[in-house]
């Protein structure tokens, strides 16, 4: 393997919740995610996976330790600067769909690119159609988001996460609402992105097959990393 570039680094990340009692939800989390890597995070329900992902996504700034993204320590950055980073470098797929219900699927996909303002409206529209096509939703483009099924909405959300060609795509159970066929489709798309465009995927999942087929899996328990290993032939190697 050639020289790996760390796109995201977590350094001794810790986090507390105080309600109803103070407890440490993340405890000394350290790892690096490399360019073009397909990383999955697994663990029992309530072990802190979503919490960790919110920290990594820069949306949650209330944590200890350091978070580096694309070579910059963004741990103390202002909300506005973080928003720019998210817009440009990070794409999200949430645990539940989360589209803007009053907008068409196409508009939903276009919004982050319109915010970024790097391309003209026509180019953005063209790209949005491409992404929707990739996820098998081209014919649904002009429907309002509220008229789509849960699985369709989730795929639109994935298309939206891809629109700005982000360095990192994060997903909290990105295939949680999908049947096995679509699950496979999404997995293949994400894998393709890591291979062709060297984008990094960090996905929380409960789906064992999904984890097994990824490049590397981090296992959590009670806010700690208990296992971090590369996947070879479906087995995690330390």
């Amino acid at each position: 393997m050639n020289e790996k570039k760390a796109i995201l680094q977590a350094r001794q990340i810790g986090k507390y919740f105080h309600d109803p009692v103070t407890f440490k939800v993340l405890d000394n989390i350290s790892f690096e995610a490399y360019q073009g890597e397909f990383l999955t995070i697994v663990g029992k329900s309530g072990c802190g996976k979503s919490t960790l992902l919110y920290v990594l996504s820069t949306m949650d700034t209330d944590f200890e330790g350091e978070l580096w993204i694309d070579g910059q320590n963004i741990s103390r950055w202002s909300q506005d600067k973080l928003a720019l980073i998210r817009n440009e470098k990070i794409g999200f797929v949430f645990q539940f769909h989360y589209l803007l219900q009053e907008f068409s699927c196409l508009k939903n996909v276009m919004l982050p690119a319109m915010k970024l303002g790097k391309y003209s409206l026509e180019e953005i529209e063209h790209k949005a159609y491409e992404k929707l096509d990739l996820l098998g939703l081209k014919d649904q483009a002009l429907k309002p988001a509220s008229k789509l099924s849960g699985g369709q909405q989730q795929r639109v959300a994935i298309a939206r996460a891809l629109i700005n060609d982000p360095l990192i795509i994060m997903g909290d159970e990105p295939t949680g609402n999908l049947d096995s066929r679509n699950s496979k489709l999404v997995f293949d798309i994400l894998r393709d992105l890591t291979r062709t465009y060297h984008q990094t995927i960090i996905a929380v999942t409960h789906d064992n097959d999904f984890a097994k087929n990824s490049d590397r899996t981090i296992e959590m328990e009670d806010g700690k990393i208990i296992h971090d290993g590369f996947v070879r032939n479906g087995n995690i190697i330390v």
């Binding site: 720019l84 998210r86 817009n87 440009e88 990070i90 999200f92 989360y98 589209l99 803007l100 915010k115």
Partner: peptide, 16 residues
């Protein structure tokens, strides 16, 4: 509130 949260997650700053 949901839309606002999504917009912020997508990188819309508070001012937007």
């Amino acid at each position: 509130l949901n839309d606002i949260a999504i917009l912020k997650a997508m990188g819309f700053p508070g001012m937007d």
